[in-house]
Nucleic acid binder design. Structure first.
Lengths: 250, 250
DNA sequence: TCGAATTTGTGCGTATGTATC
DNA sequence: GGATACATACGCACAAATTCG
């Protein structure tokens, strides 16, 4: 390996990657076998193996023992719209997006009371151990699970009110803003933090993914006059979705 | 390797991982060297190497050539603030965030003209093959590369104006909004799409990571009266950063 | 049904380059 | 400069899974 060059295994990986992204090697086709790569590129077994490993780590291909290394399908990511603007009709952001996309969105939820874990307490501006209502959601799109969400609300705010249970009563499924408005809490701003990490095994189980897949995590907190009223962790598979923000530039 | 056992390199990796997470090997300490692992566990050089690679891919340790393999500090994710509001002072969002954090941000850039690839043409609302100015950035935080960015601008807009080169002239490094204002283009809104995926080998090489690490990709497009004026791909390592949006409701 | 060929995945030994101490 | 350590690279071997005649 001469000076200034990149390692042979990266050179081979780049060449194969190029063939994948430009369509010369479409999804479901087989990559050249390790022996074949060795011959084609004039490299050793180790280099051919390392090159395949790079592409596997990048999620572009998957190896099937005894069969071959195959180009993965790359789904066109759908957009999840998040915007400061929210129409007055009673719809939470996700359901709004569902409506816009004309998709069939369904969801299940389960609420239960409990004590606020430390991290959630910080986000809600309450003391650790304070009573909270935790609601877990599984959102589906045409039957396929596509999003997990866990939301927390301080019972000091919603306890003994008609909206204590997010998905029950006349305002069930209407979204945080409308529910809070019903008990005279005016939600006026929201903080959203987007992160990403490899999905946990149970998350990917619920989302129908493969271990090692990447998920995006959206930490969202609604505020009323500077006071947090609800916070949630939203988990979506990163290969199928993007989170879109439309902002005005002052 | 007998039936039912896991591969030797995974067994070694698990043992070392355990020592890392339970504190026996705190951050900044050096892992046993490859030769040492070979002796301690009675395995070959290859197995010791593969075991280290597993831990590096998990982001738990980093190898420093010639020195050793060191346990990494558990990175507390830093916030990259993205908000509709933007102060009138001449600063691009990233530099604004740098200022807020009081960090030492530096960057390098390289601009060159070329033809718009199809995907970029769509985002800029021009025809594929139209001339564009492409500028690649490497942003550093205290010397460490932390963000890659590639921006495209249609030369039909900026060609033969003082702001054709983003980082040259009196407005160099001032951000898109101010530069466009100088040629009477009023940027009034921005669309940002956040996605995530395993990083490419080249990206992670530049960001000081390992193939397979997760990156977040921010596709940002600035608009002036509904017309795209600049679009960019921003790549940041997901284990170190979060992207934060503060939105007003209603 | 059987068996041979292919392919991946794992593992071993060694050699060399280069960065760090 | 010398010793150490990581990174890359070569060649080989074998087990398990798959494919195909």
């Amino acid at each position: 390996m001469a000076f200034g060059e990149q390692p042979a295994y990266l050179r081979v990986a780049s060449d194969l990657r190029e063939k994948i992204v430009n369509g010369a090697l479409p999804p479901h086709t087989r990559l050249p076998s390790q022996a074949r790569i060795r011959k084609d590129y004039g490299v050793s077994d180790t280099v051919a193996l390392e090159a395949r490993k790079v592409l596997m780590a990048e999620g572009l291909v998957e190896g099937r023992s005894g069969s071959g290394t195959y180009v993965r399908e790359r789904p066109v990511p759908r957009r999840i719209a998040r915007s400061g603007y929210r129409p007055p009709s009673g719809a939470s952001p996700f359901r709004q997006e569902q409506a816009e996309a004309g998709a069939r969105g369904t969801w299940e939820s389960r609420s239960e009371q409990g004590e606020a874990p430390p991290e959630i307490a910080v986000r809600l501006g309450i003391a650790p151990g304070d009573r909270v209502m935790r609601t877990r959601y599984v959102f589906r799109d045409g039957g396929e699970p596509m999003m997990l969400s866990t939301s927390w609300e301080a019972l000091a705010l919603t306890g003994r009110t008609p909206v204590m249970l997010p998905e029950e009563g006349p305002l069930g499924g209407c979204g945080v803003v409308e529910r809070m408005a019903a008990i005279d809490i005016v939600v006026d701003n929201v903080l959203e933090e987007v992160g990403a990490r490899p999905g946990l095994a149970e998350e990917l189980l619920a989302l129908g993914g493969v271990p090692g897949h990447v998920v995006m995590v959206l930490e969202r907190t609604y505020y009323a006059s500077g006071r947090p009223v609800e916070t949630a962790d939203v988990v979506v598979p990163a290969d199928r979705y993007r989170i879109a923000y439309h902002l005005s530039v002052k």
